[in-house]
Nucleic acid binder design. Structure first.
Lengths: 104, 104
DNA sequence: CACTAATATAATTGTTTACTTATATGATGT
DNA sequence: ACATCATATAAGTAAACAATTATATTAGTG
């Protein structure tokens, strides 16, 4: 069982368009920060700060691979979020349109 | 499919402890405003404003029955919320402990 | 029609939060 | 060691938001 306070904190993480879009992107595949910055067309610090919140909230994990840091979803232990994650729109179009490949 | 914007607005409704607790209460049974005020131990305008937001967001519906207005969950058309609603803690204890019966 | 009870609305205040700009850290390649 | 690229952190600002206090509305009752 999850306490209401923890649940509220998790809902706060989902209550932001930038973060929800990041999660929608990570649903497709793991991504590095520069990818997300390119696709969402905002500043690097903005994305970096959102990723930090998502990481602190346990929704994503990071993996450094040489100079790039890849983020990926970490929701296996939160099945109650599945419905919402499934409801997020597909980001396939955005991914194929931009295809930034900044981290290669 | 639900747009990200609508989804964000719905998540904002869930990203508050008072509102999440109201939803947990309404999961047990429909309730009038004074019931909720008694149980959550806050002010009537506070609850009234939260209920208004939940109503505008389509998460609850109201039914006037003489001088009292009863609120109840309205989530049949939002299956993606089921997981979260199920994760909310049971309010049975609170209900039996207070049993305010202000609206009878 | 007054009076009361239940609920809603308005205005104010303090806090939280997202975003920006500037700077720092950390890794890679020369 | 230095320059560059990727990412993180810090500080400041403006907007969003929850809670409070005061007031308005609406329904029921004598």
């Amino acid at each position: 069982m999850t306490s209401t306070t923890v649940l509220v904190d998790t809902m706060k993480l989902l209550a932001d368009k930038t973060r929800l879009t990041i999660l929608a992107l990570l649903k497709e595949k793991e991504m590095c920060v520069c990818d997300i910055v390119d696709i969402l067309q905002t500043t690097q610090p903005n994305i970096s700060q959102h990723l930090k919140k998502l990481k602190n909230g346990g929704l994503v994990v990071e993996t450094r691979r040489s100079q790039w840091i890849y983020y990926s979803l970490n929701v296996e232990d939160k099945p109650y979020l599945q419905g919402i994650l499934e409801e997020l729109p597909s980001m396939k179009d955005e991914l194929s349109r931009f295809n930034p490949n900044c981290c290669k």
